[in-house]
């Protein structure tokens, strides 16, 4: 019996160390032919809410604990858009930071009160293992986010 347990554990560990999965396509992948700029979504997002959109840009940050969101850089300085995926459906690897990607999803709009912003930023800080000071939040926020459905990340 002891031998069987030892053999099973060894087989499990060996098989897990041999398998190496390096996916480039995530979720549905990309199906749209037309790309929309991040700037356009941030400036005129109301016109795209509820629509499937495609953005291209460098992934500048990734959820460190679950890989459930990424930020894609825009074309102009200081611009970025958050892409949130359903936990577990798509998992973005941390290695995607600094890599160009094509991401698709449905555009959503959020109108958050100050309390909701604090709650959201606290959760974000916990996920990233960062410190958060609620006094830095001065008011509510309105922003656009992509509900991620698929992505193509090169060189992962």
């Amino acid at each position: 019996m002891r031998k069987t347990v030892a053999l099973t554990l060894t087989a499990l560990m060996l098989s897990l160390s041999v398998v190496s999965v390096m996916a480039k396509t995530f979720g549905d992948g990309v199906i749209l032919e037309k790309m929309t700029s991040v700037s356009e979504l941030l400036e005129n997002g109301d016109a795209y809410v509820g629509q499937r959109v495609q953005v291209r840009g460098m992934i500048v940050d990734v959820c460190a604990s679950r890989g459930c969101w990424v930020y894609v850089a825009g074309e102009k300085p200081f611009e970025k858009i958050r892409v949130k995926v359903k936990d577990g459906e798509i998992v973005f690897p941390l290695e995607a930071r600094g890599i160009e990607a094509v991401v698709e999803g449905t555009l959503e709009k959020f109108d958050l009160s100050r309390e909701e912003v604090i709650q959201r930023k606290r959760h974000h800080a916990e996920e990233q293992g960062e410190e958060f000071d609620p006094s830095t939040v001065t008011g509510g926020e309105t922003f656009f986010q992509i509900r991620g459905l698929g992505a193509l990340i090169e060189g992962i």
Partner: peptide, 9 residues
């Protein structure tokens, strides 16, 4: 950051 090979898989 570095993947934990066993746990990641």
């Amino acid at each position: 950051s570095q993947r934990r090979p066993f746990w990641y898989r």
